[in-house]
């Protein structure tokens, strides 16, 4: 497949010098865009998963810690609502642990008015209106509030979806640009080697014989560019992961790549090579067909 000897001696062409670079850059960009898109997709699914089934209620009392009766009333109301699987008040220690990174140990004095948090887990597939439940809760228990985590996440989810569409668009554009460059390089090669191609034709070569020489040469150039391009993208992704490691305590599940995504990344230079080879083939066949 990677026969370096060719009747056309395509190895000396200008394309041999610029095409690997172009394809390296294209594979690099496509791999990063794909990694971004797939990573965000996975994060999105993760966020959805962890947020879909849960609500948080908080009960605030200006005077200090809310009265246990209030908390009890809220728990009863929440637990009795159809679609709620479980409602559980977090004890003061758990809430303090949540606040500590923000306030610091020293500021967490026992007299600090800390709201009581109630974790509400919904039944899977429950269809209850959080807005209606919030109104009922606020009416029944003064100082209570119900947060639907999805509400504050919505803009983030929309942004993520837009970024994923952008990543997909980049991958498509990079693919089209690669096709255009290969068409250009192949046409140039056909023009440079017109005389030898004419001789091959006169000896009885089919267009396919000539196309195959361009194909194997293009495959070689594409891999020569694509594999280093992928390696560069992998280094960048590893570096980004290193930076992201400092965000362990982030509020959201991390953006990571699964094995499927990694396999997809490894496929990028191979798909690019396949695209380049097919483009070279159809360019040669299309151009030669117009010859007498």
């Amino acid at each position: 497949m990677l026969a370096r000897r060719s009747d056309l001696q395509l190895e000396g062409d200008a394309a041999g010098r610029f095409l690997p670079w172009v394809i390296a850059v294209m594979v690099f960009l496509a791999a990063l865009a794909l990694a971004g898109g797939l990573g965000l997709g996975k994060a999105l699914a993760g966020w959805d998963q962890s947020l879909k089934g849960s609500l948080t209620a908080q009960i605030v009392d200006a005077g200090g810690t809310p009265a246990p009766e209030k908390v009890q009333a809220a728990l009863v109301l929440l637990s009795g609502t159809p679609g709620v699987e479980m409602a559980r008040a977090l004890d003061r220690h758990a809430v303090e642990a949540l606040l500590e990174p923000w306030l610091g140990q020293a500021n967490l004095t026992p007299d600090l008015p800390i709201p009581t948090l109630i974790e509400v887990r919904l039944e899977p597939g429950a269809s209850l209106s959080t807005a209606a439940l919030a109104r009922r809760l606020e009416a029944a228990v003064p100082g209570a509030r119900l947060d639907d985590d999805r509400t504050w996440l919505a803009p983030l989810i929309h942004l993520t979806e837009a970024l994923r569409a952008l990543a997909a668009g980049i991958v498509v554009l990079v693919g089209l640009a690669t096709i255009a460059m290969v068409i250009f390089a192949t046409r140039a090669g056909l023009a440079v080697h017109r005389e030898v191609i004419a001789v091959l034709h006169l000896i009885g070569a089919h267009d396919g014989y000539i196309a195959r020489q361009f194909q194997s040469h293009t495959l070689w150039l594409a891999l020569k560019g694509g594999l280093p391009g992928l390696a560069a993208a992998a280094l960048v992704l590893l570096a980004l992961r290193g930076l992201g490691g400092g965000m362990q305590a982030a509020l959201l599940p991390p953006v990571t790549l699964g094995t499927g995504a990694i396999a997809a990344l490894v496929l990028v230079p191979l798909v690019a090579a396949l695209l380049a080879v097919l483009t070279a083939r159809f360019t040669v066949l299309g151009t030669l067909r117009q010859m007498p």
């Binding site: 001696q9 034709h201 006169l202 009885g204």
Partner: peptide, 21 residues
Amino acid sequence: LPGLRRRIGVVFQDFRLIAHL
């Protein structure tokens, strides 16, 4: 054409040998 050309041998006036082969 290729099928017909394979049945024909040609010595070109200017040889048309392939220079790099």
